[in-house]
C-alpha cells in the first residue's frame, strides 16, 4: 500500500529552477503514440475497395468522428477540426486501456496529461472563435449580459478547463486506486480482473468519449 501516489521523477536544474519529468508517464505516452502509429500504418498499408479487418476499423473511426464533427460544426469547419477530434479520441481510448496490461500504466492517471490536453482544447476553441467571429465580436461575448459580469465569465471559461481535465483524471486515477486497494484487501483473488474490465475498458472508453465530445462542443460553442 506504500506506493499509493508514488511517482518516479527526474528532476533537472535549469537556471536556478527545477524541471520535473515523470519518467514512467513519458514512457507510457510514447508506448501509446507508437501503438497508434503502428495502427495507422497497418490500416493504410494495403488500401483496397474490399477492405481488410484493420482498414475497416480505421474507416469506422474516421467515418463516425467526421459525422459527429459535421453535426456540431457544419460541413466547412468540420474538415479542419475532425482529424483533431478523431486523433484525440484514439489517443485517449488507448491511454485508458493501457492500464489493463500488467506493468503498464495509464498516462491519463497523471494530471499532466489530461490538463495539457484540456489546455490544448481551450486554446484551439478560442482560436477558432476569434478566427470565425473576429476579435471584436469575440471580446463582446465576455461582456454579456452586463459589463460587470466580465470577471465571472472569464473564470467560467477557465473553470471549463479544470472540469474537463479533472473529470478524466479523477475517473482514471480513481479507478486505479480502487483497483489497487481492493486487490490488496482480497489478496489479488477473483475480483481484480472484473474491476479492471469495468474501470479500464468500460469507464475508460466512456470518459475518452466524453472528453472528446466536450472538446468538440466547446469548439462549436465558440464558432457558432
Amino acid at each position: 500500500m506504500e506506493d499509493l501516489g508514488k511517482i518516479h521523477q527526474l528532476i533537472v536544474p535549469v537556471f536556478g529552477h527545477e524541471m520535473t519529468f515523470n519518467l514512467e508517464i513519458i514512457l507510457m505516452t510514447w508506448i501509446v503514440i507508437i501503438g497508434l502509429l503502428f495502427f495507422g500504418y497497418l490500416a493504410t498499408r494495403k488500401k483496397r475497395i474490399i477492405p481488410g479487418p484493420i482498414q475497416v476499423l480505421g474507416e469506422i473511426f474516421v467515418d463516425q468522428f467526421y459525422a459527429l464533427a459535421e453535426d456540431a460544426l457544419g460541413k466547412e469547419t468540420a474538415k479542419r477540426y475532425a482529424p483533431l477530434i478523431c486523433a484525440l479520441f484514439m489517443f485517449l481510448v488507448l491511454s485508458n486501456w493501457l492500464g489493463v496490461i500488467p506493468h503498464l500504466e495509464e498516462p491519463t492517471k497523471d494530471l499532466n496529461t489530461p490538463l495539457s490536453l484540456g489546455v490544448m482544447g481551450f486554446f484551439i476553441a478560442h482560436y477558432a472563435g476569434i478566427k470565425k467571429k473576429g476579435l471584436k465580436a469575440y471580446m463582446k461575448g465576455y461582456f454579456e449580459p452586463i459589463f460587470f459580469m466580465m470577471p465571472l465569465n472569464l473564470i467560467g471559461e477557465l473553470a471549463k478547463v479544470v472540469s474537463i481535465s479533472f473529470r478524466l483524471f479523477g475517473n482514471i486515477m480513481g479507478g486505479s486506486i480502487i483497483i489497487m486497494v481492493v486487490s490488496y484487501l482480497v489478496y489479488n483473488l477473483l475480483l481484480p480482473p472484473f474491476l479492471n474490465a469495468f474501470f479500464g475498458l468500460f469507464v475508460g472508453t466512456i470518459q475518452a468519449f466524453v472528453f472528446t465530445m466536450l472538446t468538440l462542443v466547446y469548439i462549436s460553442v465558440q464558432v457558432n
Binding site: A159, V162, F166, G170, F209, V210, M213, L214
Partner: peptide, 16 residues
C-alpha cells in the same frame, strides 16, 4: 453523455 458530463462539473470542483 455531454449533458451528464457537464452536470458533474461541480462534483469535480469538489474533488479539486
Amino acid at each position: 453523455l455531454i449533458g451528464s458530463g457537464v452536470a458533474q462539473s461541480t462534483a469535480i470542483y469538489g474533488f479539486l
